[in-house]
Structure formats: C-alpha cells, structure tokens
Write a protein that binds this DNA or RNA. Structure first.
Lengths: 160, 160
DNA sequence: ACACAATAGTTGAATGTATCAACTATCAGA
DNA sequence: TCTGATAGTTGATACATTCAACTATTGTGT
C-alpha cells in the first residue's frame, strides 16, 4: 500500500488512449445539435435515423440484426419499426425459410427519404475541412483500424 | 440539366470527408453497448452520465451552460438535474450576483461516483490499443483540430 | 424612474425511447 | 417427441426530449 491512489491516477493520466478518446467523445457531442436539427426536417428521431441508415436499399435485414446494429433491445426495434412502417417508409416481410423471421425492407418512399436524410444529417461536418486530404486519409485509416479491432473482439449478438 | 443526378452522386462519393465521417459514426455506434452496460452499474442513463461528465469537481456551472454543452433544451436540464439532485449527487446553488441563475455543483458523493463512472464508462475502449502510441498521438491531434474548427465556427449558445 | 426586451429556469403536456418480464410462435437437436 | 433456443410482440414502467406558457430577474433605452 505504498501510494495506491496517486499511482492509479498517474497510470490513467499516462494512458495515451485517454486524450484521444476524450476528444472523440467531445467531437461527437459537438455535432449532436446539427444532427438533430437536420433530422427535424424529416420528422425523424436519432434512433429512427440510425435504423434507416442500417437499411441498404434493395436489401432485406432481420429485426434481430437491427437490434444488434443499434445495440438495443428487440422490443425497442419492434417499436421503431412500427413507427417507420406506419409512415410507409419500411415494410415487414416474412421469411419463407423461417417463419419466425421478419425481414425489413425499405419502401420506395423510404429509400428516397433515406437518401435525402443521409445527405443532410449524416453528411460529414464542415469542421472536417480543417484537415487536408492527406490528413483525412490518415484519419479514415486510423478509424478503420479501430473499428476492425472492435469487431474482431466482439462477435455478432444475433445467432446464425 | 445535363446529368444533374449522377453528377451530384459522384460529387458526394468523391468527398474525401465522407468515408472518415461514416467510420467515425460506426466507431461511435460500436461502443454504445459497452457504454450503456458500464452505466447500468451506476444506475445512470447516458444523458445523466454526460451531465456528470461536464461537471468539474469543485467547480460550479450554470444550468444554461449544461444545456449548451449537451445541446438540449433548458427544461430537459431541469429534468436531469432534478433526478441527480434527488439522488444527492449534485446540488443547486443560487448565485448571489444574479438571482436568476442556479449554479450546479457536485456533492461529495457525486464527485466520488463521477470519478468511478468516468473510469468505467468513459474509459478508452480496448480497440484503441490497435493503434501504436505514435498513431494515437496523430489521432488525438487530428481530433483536436476538428473540434477546434467546430468551436471556432459555432459560438456558445448561452449568453455572456 | 419607467417601460420593454432579454435571460434563467420551471411547469405541464405530449411524444418518443428504452428496458424488462411474460408471452406466442417457430425452429433445431437429443 | 420433448426440450431448449431463437424471433418477435405485448404491456408496464421509467426516462428523455421538446414545446409553449409561465415566473422571476436583469439589463437597456428613454
């Protein structure tokens, strides 16, 4: 029990990942306002927007995969899908091979709204222009490696 | 009206910021689960956690500044502060110089819980270790410049 | 002083999010 | 065929979020 507390604090301070992650979260927070404002034009909430983002046009995706992509409960997905389906943006389709499964697909209107919404709400922020094209490329490659490292450590929550 | 649609799409595809921002959001999404799980131990919701994070121990901060830091409505801050105060984690203090203002401060219990919570829920993810210390330093500096560029373009919402 | 606008914060209503437990239906394997 | 796992829904509950309307207070211009 020499100096456990100050040692622990020093360790945390010295972790070179700390500052990077703190800045990551701050950048995230900084863009919440622009994001919400852009979504308001489409009458979409953030979770609804992320759900739409996860739907590739022309592709079908199971609800349990949406839950895993959004890291949320299955019943939450039921709720979100209900709202978007009632607006005619998506559709539930039954899977002929497994009748438990409901495949979600974009409607024509949904695909159109999704494209516009992605361009406005998910567009890169102006502040990214502070980086040169070379720096952007570096930034992208670093993020890509972080994401891959995460995916390698964490298997998909959904079975199959 | 030569080829407006394909030109627009090509422009978007060519924007070097696009891939970087998409990856940024994917990294954010990827860590939602770990974040929520860590917060569950403290019975805190994400907004409550970000509110606590914005409170420096020993410092006082106005509610309108919290609203601006969290990019949310003032009445939402009232709501969040109510909950945290009822748990004894923070306190409202009146400002002697301006009686409209309520300054928020951490209680002793709040400061303790905040420290533990920051270390678990806001700790850098393991996936950041995929980067070398030199790369982490680059990553941090790039994020810092993006954040600064944002702050330069957007003045604080709160007066003063 | 006075009227007036701006600011800080609260309240109540309305809607959406999120989780949990309990449930139905379906599939897959011993 | 029994059993357990999986996909999804439902209802209950709590919290988040915004809006409009409101009180209280401060600052400004005349």
């Amino acid at each position: 029990m020499g100096e456990p507390r100050s040692k622990r604090i020093a360790d945390l301070r010295d972790d070179p990942r700390n500052g990077a992650w703190r800045l990551f979260l701050d950048v995230m927070l900084a863009h919440k306002e622009r994001f919400s404002a852009a979504l308001a034009k489409f009458d979409l909430s953030p979770p609804q927007a992320f759900l739409l983002r996860s739907l590739a046009p022309g592709a079908e995706i199971r609800m349990c995969h949406i839950a895993s992509a959004l890291s949320c409960d299955a019943s939450n997905v039921t709720n979100l899908v209900d709202r978007l389906e009632s607006r005619g943006l998506i559709e539930r389709q039954s899977d002929p091979a497994d009748r438990r499964i409901r495949n979600i697909v974009l409607t024509k209107a949904g695909a159109k709204l999704r494209t516009q919404m992605l361009q406005e709400a998910f567009a890169p922020p102006e502040s990214l222009s502070a980086l040169t094209p070379a720096e952007l490329s570096t930034f992208e490659s670093l993020l890509s490696r972080v994401l891959k490292a995460h995916q390698a450590s964490e298997p998909d929550a959904c079975a199959e």
